[in-house]
Amino acid sequence: MDLSQLKERCANWLENTIIRLDEVTLEVKPAHLLDLCLWLRDTSGFEFNQLIDVCGVDYLHYGLDDWETESTTETGFSRGTTATLLRENPGKPNRFAVVYHLLSLTQNQRIRLRVNIPNQSELMVDSVIAIWPAANWYEREAFDLFGILFRGHPDLRRLLTDYGFVGHPFRKDFPLIGKVEARYDAALGRVIYEPVSIVARVLEPKVIRRDNRYLVEGAKQAGELSHEK
């Protein structure tokens, strides 16, 4: 895979190119997703003929902890200090993204594409189903779980959630315990839905530590890290 050729030819389509942990990630502009996908599939030397995975990502709580801590030192851990309520991440220009994993069987290469959907635009990206038929269910799943719409998908129904389910459960503002619970009502003779009766709890708080091991100079590449004992 010749990355310089890719950068040269596709520069107008890309927002960013990231290489980390031996993995290539292309952040593609939403308008040019189909151009890039088609090019990646049909250009010799790339030939990404298999779509391995499509998934949605919700960045609403990215980088936010619910237990603020001081930094970890070389000698030990610091204590958790203040419990904070989960806030929303205002800094990110895009809340949702769709991530594609491609595989080239002939070149034996993998690549990852990410489409960042700007917050102000509608939650819709082009469907790649015409390029890789495998996208069918993956896009239905992303629609079901995140509410992302795929333009041109012929059959965008819910896939994993129950018939008549309301909401998109994998969004970060959808509670883990859900919103409704089901039970059998003997009087009505059928299963009914009621608001959940349990209380959401955090068992282990999410903490983000500025861990010194990962702040060593030049250690942004986690693969090059050496661990001090």
Partner: peptide, 26 residues
């Protein structure tokens, strides 16, 4: 396949499991 996004915390930010059987059934 397992696609893992971490935001530097003690929990995964996003975990996506690429199940082998999923495209087969599709």
């Amino acid at each position: 396949g397992v696609y893992l996004i971490s935001d530097g915390a003690n929990k995964p930010y996003r975990l996506k499991v690429r199940a082998a059987g999923f495209p087969h059934l599709a």
